Amino acid sequence: MEVPKDLTSYVRVLKLASTPSWEEFSQVALIAGAGIAFVGFVGFLIFAIMTFLPGGV
């Protein structure tokens, strides 16, 4: 691992990066929130199925 070479590539990426617009940020936040809610819902369904089935935990 060459530290100077890695640092220059990181600096180059940071220079190219820009702050997202409010529309872009809110769209990404909405999609991420929907994904988190979906995973939670699937987890709840698995919990409910395991609870109500005979021999469930």
Score class of each variant (00 low, 15 high):
35 G>H: 07
8 T>K: 10
16 L>H: 10
55 G>A: 11
28 V>M: 15
56 G>L: 00
57 V>D: 09
41 F>G: 04
7 L>G: 05
30 L>Y: 08
39 V>M: 14
6 D>Y: 03
46 I>E: 12
25 F>W: 12
12 R>I: 06
53 L>D: 01
49 I>V: 11
18 S>H: 15
14 L>T: 10
50 M>E: 14
5 K>R: 14
30 L>P: 01
4 P>V: 00
9 S>C: 12
29 A>D: 03
30 L>W: 08
21 S>I: 01
6 D>S: 06
1 M>I: 08
54 P>D: 00
48 A>D: 03
40 G>Y: 03
17 A>F: 04
32 A>I: 02
51 T>S: 10
3 V>Q: 08
19 T>W: 08
44 F>Y: 11
11 V>K: 06
39 V>R: 05
46 I>Q: 13
25 F>Y: 11
27 Q>I: 01
7 L>C: 13
44 F>Q: 11
55 G>L: 04
1 M>L: 10
23 E>A: 12
41 F>C: 13
41 F>V: 06
36 I>K: 04
12 R>S: 09
21 S>F: 02
24 E>P: 01
26 S>T: 14
46 I>C: 15
10 Y>N: 09
5 K>W: 07
49 I>H: 01
5 K>S: 13
4 P>T: 00
34 A>K: 15
8 T>I: 09
7 L>T: 15
12 R>D: 08
21 S>E: 02
7 L>N: 14
51 T>Y: 07
22 W>N: 02
36 I>W: 02
33 G>E: 05
19 T>P: 02
34 A>T: 09
38 F>W: 13
30 L>I: 09
43 G>N: 10
22 W>S: 05
21 S>C: 07
50 M>L: 13
35 G>Q: 08
44 F>L: 11
55 G>R: 03
46 I>V: 15
45 L>C: 14
39 V>A: 14
31 I>D: 07
39 V>G: 07
52 F>Y: 15
43 G>M: 09
51 T>L: 09
44 F>E: 08
23 E>R: 11
3 V>T: 15
32 A>G: 05
10 Y>C: 09
41 F>N: 05
33 G>F: 02
23 E>H: 03
11 V>I: 15
48 A>E: 02
16 L>P: 00
16 L>V: 06
29 A>T: 04
55 G>N: 04
23 E>I: 02
27 Q>M: 03
1 M>A: 14
52 F>H: 05
15 K>Q: 10
44 F>W: 15
42 V>Q: 10
7 L>M: 15
4 P>F: 02
24 E>R: 07
55 G>I: 02
18 S>G: 13
1 M>P: 01
48 A>T: 09
31 I>Y: 04
50 M>D: 15
43 G>E: 14
32 A>R: 04
11 V>Q: 11
55 G>D: 03
36 I>E: 01
6 D>T: 05
32 A>T: 08
5 K>T: 08
36 I>S: 03
26 S>Q: 15
37 A>W: 00
25 F>V: 05
14 L>Y: 10
19 T>M: 12
25 F>S: 10
23 E>W: 03
39 V>W: 05
47 F>E: 14
20 P>A: 05
24 E>L: 05
42 V>Y: 09
17 A>L: 12
40 G>W: 04
